[in-house]
């Protein structure tokens, strides 16, 4: 303060050895996290460029900043101005007495912007997780040798976003690898869970010991992590999903069972009446009235008056929509930014 008062001016110098610092623009969400008493860990994840450039599937390399639950794409913006990071120091020039000085220690030609990424992790997980399909009691799939944390670390989204996609796909770890089950596997596994519950007299929609079901289903050779993933997916919303107890949500479960049953049938002809019977058979007796077509509306098509088919377009459409809206929005942002830069 002395310098400011005495001379009314602040000496400004430029350091000969410039440091390499980067400036990252902080959106309100990130700033709030950093200002919190215990800021959560942040990390920068990246995805390498994939596919030959020029091909439609080519994806440019990009990096994201991740909080535990959200992620932001990093974009570099060139500045035409000189942007200095300065440091308050005590400097003497010539024979003068050292004086408080502002010294430019770094010059930044570009800054980094953060743009929220609301992309679903499902598409990424589908691409890297091998499908665990049980055909005639056998599984013919090579493991990827990657644990869940390794898989997550390669997806350019936060762990929270990865986790919700993982749960949605009912993905699981088994023998050192990570998989996602086919609809067929899910349908069969449910059949075993349902049979085990019947044998043990377990009411699935009230609290039961997860272990009781797991023990019986394990004997049939299902990876226990898969069974746990199913029970977690179908758990009632108010249920603690980490403890030794489980409790399933009737409606969620009935819907899941109906959809996987239908999806597992794929292209084969399925009589609507037969499907409804099969579906009801897979549910505990008292739940059967939920097994109606409107429970799974949107998930099926009726190719004829007597047959039913899984709506493939439903699944495909969700993914495609995701990808195109993403591409569109990011290109729009580029455009906006060029526009802004021009106005400056």
């Amino acid at each position: 303060m002395a310098a400011l008062q005495d001379e009314g001016s602040v000496p400004f110098s430029i350091a000969h050895g410039q440091q390499h610092l980067r400036l990252l623009e902080l959106p309100a969400e990130i700033l709030e996290l950093l200002d919190a008493p215990n800021p959560p860990p942040l990390s920068i994840k990246s995805q390498a460029a994939s596919g030959a450039s020029g091909t439609p599937s080519a994806k440019p390399a990009y990096a994201v900043l991740c909080t535990p639950t959200s992620s932001f794409q990093l974009r570099q913006v060139q500045t035409s101005n000189s942007l200095f990071v300065t440091q308050a120091t005590l400097e003497a020039h010539g024979n003068e007495i050292p004086a408080p000085t502002i010294c430019a220690i770094a010059s930044c030609a570009a800054t980094l912007e953060l743009h929220p990424s609301t992309e679903s992790s499902v598409v990424h997980l589908q691409a890297v997780l091998p499908v665990y399909d049980i055909v005639g009691g056998d599984v013919d799939v090579a493991g990827n040798g990657k644990s869940k944390p390794v898989i997550f670390s390669h997806i350019p989204l936060s762990d929270g976003q990865c986790e919700s996609g993982w749960r949605e796909l009912v993905a699981f770890e088994f023998a050192g690898s990570s998989y996602r089950p086919s609809a067929n596997t899910l349908s069969q596994a449910w059949k075993s869970i349902s049979a085990a519950a019947l044998a043990e007299g377990v009411k699935l929609d009230s609290q039961f010991l997860t272990e009781d079901i797991l023990r019986l289903v394990d004997e049939e050779g299902y990876p226990s992590d898969l069974i746990l993933a199913i029970l977690r997916l179908l758990a009632a919303d108010n249920q603690d999903k980490t403890g030794p107890w489980s409790c399933l949500d009737r409606r969620k479960t009935a819907c899941f069972v109906g959809k996987t049953l239908l999806e597992a049938r794929q292209e084969k002809k399925y009589l609507t009446a037969e499907f409804l019977d099969d579906w009801r058979d897979l549910l505990p007796g008292t739940w059967r009235e939920i097994a109606k077509l409107d429970t799974i509306s949107g998930a099926y098509t009726l190719p004829s008056s007597t047959t039913i088919r899984f709506n493939e377009r439903l699944a495909a459409a969700i993914n495609a929509e995701d990808v195109t809206s993403n591409a569109a929005s990011s290109s729009r942002k580029w455009h906006e930014r060029f526009g802004r830069a021009r106005q400056r």
Partner: peptide
């Protein structure tokens, strides 16, 4: 003690001769 200063253009200043300059910065 870090701050940010932005300006149009660049600041040119005579580069110091390494041996003769005891200072690690140039006041501009």
């Amino acid at each position: 003690g870090l701050a940010i200063l932005e300006l149009q253009g660049t600041i040119h200043f005579p580069m110091p001769i390494p041996e003769s300059s005891a200072s690690s910065s140039t006041q501009v």
